[in-house]
Design a protein around this nucleic acid. Structure first.
Length: 362
DNA sequence: AAACTCGCCAACCGCTATGAT
DNA sequence: GATCATAGCGGTTGGCGAGTT
């Protein structure tokens, strides 16, 4: 038999809070302090469940709450911490003063989760894929309606997986050292990367997409994660011919070499770089969109039409295959035990490290 | 202008953890 | 140890408002 409800629901008001109710609740808490939520509504004269009062206070009325949009800096923190904590929103919120777990959760579900999509295709004879968006004409012209709500509504299988294996495995030290190496190599590429941005080019060389390209589409090459590229491992280093005609970038040969160089590094560095292979068929192209979200939507259609790729669920598949979460997969091999073995203090340190490990710090 | 669609977000629900008795 | 109350968390829902036809 289940627990009795937290409060008698008959006769209680539900739904949106009115300004009057907010005022009553604020006044009461300012006078009596937080706590005793069960008795609070009765004492304060509110026809609300105590739980509802608590939620309203925590998520909306508290004085220390930060209003306004999530800043790019906060977004980056969320992304980084989500890589470590998974859907433990309260933990993530603990690193963002003035933000609530609910707010972060909503922001993730509505803004960020959709961006973290990459590619999967049905067959695995993977040669690299490069899509040169800059070569495609036309804008991101949507033809009616909004984007499919199914994408938003879709349950996220990662949730369960993250509970089973919620942490990236590479130790902070290893990860930092590895990222340093990658960063050194990528210093040389900085201009090239910038050029790629200027050319409106998304490189999916062997599905080579900069994590940061995906996560921070508007920030260009300078921001934090831009040097962490999703490379390839295990797949053949596809020749230019195999890589799909759709779009070799102007400096594509150079990039290819560099990319592959990174792949080798990734192996040497204990798998810091993630892996995926893919092949492109000729004539592939996607419209350049001002918003990457919209761009992905375009590509969702395109991948079905031309490639038979599935956007949705790629990460789930890779996670299932490799027994970890997406970020673990992106960042390297999994070793759940290693992270789980950390005490909470170490895990906190790890989170702090994640937040401090900006590219320019490497 | 109306109808339709759907993204966003506040609020709700169910569950677990924890502490008191 | 069992039971209960409470706090807290994460997943889900539903209404509002805005975009699109």
């Amino acid at each position: 038999m289940g627990r009795a409800p937290c409060c008698e629901k008959v006769g209680l008001k539900r739904g949106r809070w009115t300004a009057e109710e907010d005022e009553i609740l604020m006044t009461y808490i300012q006078a009596n302090g937080e706590g005793s939520w069960r008795s609070l509504p009765k004492n304060a004269g509110l026809l609300r469940c105590g739980k509802s009062c608590r939620l309203r206070w925590i998520n909306y009325l508290r004085a220390d709450l930060k209003r306004g949009n999530i800043s790019p800096e906060e977004e980056e923190i969320i992304i980084k911490l989500h890589g470590s904590y998974g859907n433990r929103w309260s933990l993530i919120a603990g690193h963002l003063p003035g933000r609530t777990d609910n707010e972060i959760k909503n922001y993730w579900n509505s803004h960020l989760s959709r961006r973290i999509h990459t590619f999967r295709r049905h067959n695995n004879d993977g040669a690299p894929v490069v899509v040169d968006i800059g070569k495609i004409t036309g804008g991101c012209k949507r033809t009616g309606g909004r984007t499919g709500r199914s994408a938003m509504k879709k349950k996220n299988p990662n949730v369960q997986m993250r509970r089973e294996n919620p942490y990236p495995s590479t130790t902070p030290l290893l990860k930092r050292e590895a990222l340093k190496d990658v960063s050194k190599q990528n210093d040389k590429k900085e201009n090239m990367v910038k050029n790629s941005y200027q050319a409106n080019e998304v490189v999916m060389g062997t599905c080579q997409v900069s994590v940061n390209d995906v996560l921070n589409p508007h920030e260009g090459a300078e921001s934090g994660l831009s040097d962490v590229r999703v490379g390839m491992e295990g797949g053949p280093e596809g020749s230019t011919e195999e890589r799909g005609i759709g779009g070799l970038a102007p400096n594509d040969d150079q990039r290819e070499n560099e990319v592959m160089g990174s792949n080798e590094e990734s192996k040497e560095n204990g798998g810091v770089l993630g892996v995926m292979d893919g092949r492109c068929e000729s004539g592939m192209g996607i419209d350049w969109c001002s918003s990457l979200d919209a761009c992905f939507e375009e590509m969702e259609d395109l991948q079905v039409e031309l490639l038979g790729w599935e956007w949705e669920g790629m990460e789930e598949k890779k996670c299932e295959e490799e027994g970890g979460d997406l970020w673990s997969w992106l960042w390297g091999s999994d070793n759940e035990e290693e992270f789980q073995a950390m005490g909470s203090r170490e895990q906190e340190k790890y989170a702090d490290w994640l937040l401090s490990a900006e590219t320019n710090d490497l």
